[in-house]
Design a binder for these strands. Structure first.
Lengths: 142, 142
DNA sequence: ACTTATTCAGACAATTTTGTCTTAAATTTA
DNA sequence: TAAATTTAAGACAAAATTGTCTGAATAAGT
């Protein structure tokens, strides 16, 4: 579920990109109803991968380290869920590949290639714009 | 991982559909290197959903209850992994839908619709044929 | 310097998923 | 009817995932 919380937080942060300064994790956790410490841990990995920049101390928090137009859904997913996200054998068979395919290898490969393509052409900017315009919600309850 | 083991077993069984009688679960578990009791449990759910038919006692085992041409990947997946497989919100937000979409709702909906379509047009027959022809493997090691 | 606010790091706990084992029920053969 | 073989059912255990907590480090303001 890391991706779920990480993506939501990133969209929340990116939706405020016209505001100066850092967004505190405490605030994000309250607004998105995610445990503070848990969210902190997830955002740390995004910081380590230079998607976010962080600042400790009063008025500290996190901020985007890159223009949201240049952060793709694919990139975020790879960081949050691992690079194997689109490349694992559907049947979990180790060593599955072109040489020794499993019965669904070709089938699954086509699907994942298409998905990967789509995920790599959707950016954080697009998604967060929907949040800003209010056409979309980031929290559970109405 | 239920799907992984269940699908593999189904392909294994379907690949032998010209042979008379039942395939014993013990044999499947040995050939596919899956724990016998574990596999038994998974195949039970397939039996309960009338994909397989089972027979106890000597020379008993399981056999396809339907023509493999009429068993789709979608159907198998729904039974093994639940009906929500293609319809859950990517961000896990309860209540996400057309009325109250999340930022990736439309994006994800397009992808899952395409996937669902493809999964519903691939049958157990097609997949098991690949196993029979030997162009494909069902086990881990070479 | 001291206090306060904040992220960082990692140990710890709870939950869920995955896998194993034991016993029961059914079926066949002799 | 007895013995052997096989699936059925469900309790139990192990492992992985998910989530929580405590203390440390850093920075700003007074």
């Amino acid at each position: 579920m890391n991706a779920v919380y990480g993506l939501r937080a990133l969209m929340y942060i990116a939706a405020q990109r016209d505001q100066e300064g850092y967004v505190s994790i405490r605030k994000i956790s309250e607004d998105l109803d995610i445990s503070f410490h848990f969210l902190t841990k997830i955002l740390q990995t995004l910081t380590q991968h230079h998607i976010l920049h962080s600042q400790r101390g009063p008025a500290g928090g996190v901020a985007l380290a890159k223009a949201p137009e240049q952060v793709t859904l694919l990139e975020m997913l790879y960081i949050l869920e691992g690079e194997g996200y689109f490349s694992e054998c559907f049947l979990g068979l180790p060593g599955c590949g072109e040489q020794q395919p499993c019965p669904v290898h070709d089938f699954w490969r086509h699907i994942t290639l298409t998905m990967k393509e789509k995920f790599s052409h959707t950016t954080l900017a697009e998604l967060s714009d929907k949040v800003r315009s209010g056409e979309v919600r980031l929290v559970s309850c109405t």
